[in-house]
């Protein structure tokens, strides 16, 4: 661990925290200033004005926005995210629960995708005539074209008609695969490209000339060098996973942040919306920071930027 790396890490973490706070504050402001609030449904149901007024007072909606925002910010400093008006529970517990579910889903998908995608990418990049590579190329082109919504529905159909995968509520196989398969294909293609770029590099030609056996050349020398560009996209991969997991969660009824966020928005649950935004931003930037740090460790040049 050298000083430059530590400084880089600190800078990244501080900007990540700022990012998460800005996202949460924007979500709070937007939700609060948008037309309608948590009592809109009560109004629509024809409740008496006194009842609505009492409910608004209980939720603190009758106070001016500046006061509400101040109270929210003060709570944030103490680690209190307020109470959800829909669930009548503290936002922090709710959000932690759901964020853990999303993180588990995304983590598993990332792991599966990496384990499938990278080795296949090395094979198709280094030995394009190998039968594995010939099989992978069209398959990965097809898988890359599967949008999260489409993949989730197709896997649901497959699971329901064959019984190969469980479709019980809480079963992780369908949502995880729906996320992992297109990602595996993307990683395979990136890895293949990286290996293709590397195998013709002078140092590898020299290594081959020294008589290093091909499999060692591919799996040790080329793989290690091709790691850098692939690692470089992991931050983006995590962002994509997050976006993709939204549709997948909603379709497969996975109790993650996506669904909670949607419900909170629908119910104009101000504290819950900003809590979800905060949790999402934290997960997203945590993933990005980890990816950046890994890249900075592998590639000293990356420490210079940002």
């Amino acid at each position: 661990m050298n000083l430059a790396l530590v400084r880089f890490a600190l800078r990244r973490i501080v900007s990540a925290a700022a990012f998460a706070l800005i996202v949460a504050a924007s979500a709070f402001t937007l939700t609060r200033l948008a037309p309608g609030d948590a009592t809109t449904e009560l109004v629509a149901s024809g409740a008496r004005p006194e009842v609505i007024a009492r409910e608004r007072a209980r939720l603190g909606l009758d106070r001016p926005f500046s006061q509400q925002a101040l109270a929210w910010a003060r709570g944030m400093l103490r680690g209190d995210l307020g109470e959800s008006s829909m669930f009548g529970r503290p936002v922090r517990a709710l959000v932690l629960e759901r964020a853990a579910a999303t993180a588990r889903l995304a983590g598993l998908a990332l792991l599966v995708a990496t384990l499938i995608g990278l080795p296949l990418g090395v094979i198709s990049g280094a030995t394009p005539r190998h039968w594995v590579a010939r099989l992978t190329a069209p398959l990965s082109l097809a898988l890359v074209s599967i949008l999260p919504v489409v993949g989730a529905l197709a896997l649901l159909l497959l699971a329901a008609s064959t019984g190969w995968l469980s479709i019980e509520p809480g079963a992780i196989a369908v949502p995880a695969l729906a996320l992992a398969l297109p990602l595996a294909a993307s990683l395979e293609r990136l890895q293949a490209q990286a290996v293709r770029d590397v195998v013709s590099a002078p140092d590898l030609v020299a290594a081959a000339a020294r008589g290093i056996p091909p499999h060692r050349l591919i799996w040790v020398h080329a793989s290690r060098q091709s790691l850098r560009p692939v690692l470089g996209v992991y931050g983006v991969v995590i962002g994509s996973l997050f976006g993709g997991s939204f549709a997948v969660e909603v379709i497969t009824a996975w109790p993650g942040l996506g669904r909670l966020m949607y419900d909170a928005l629908r119910g104009r649950d101000v504290f819950l919306v900003s809590g979800c935004a905060l949790a999402g931003a934290v997960c997203l930037t945590a993933g990005n920071v980890i990816a950046d740090l890994l890249r900075a460790i592998v590639d000293p040049r990356a420490r210079e930027t940002s």
Partner: peptide, 22 residues
């Protein structure tokens, strides 16, 4: 779109815009 956009060297596209980042 993938087919039409595919170059001699492949360009992968994930949900977002992974390839251009790479």
């Amino acid at each position: 779109l993938q087919l039409a956009g595919a170059r001699a060297s492949t360009r992968a596209v994930f949900f977002d815009s992974l390839a251009s980042h790479a």
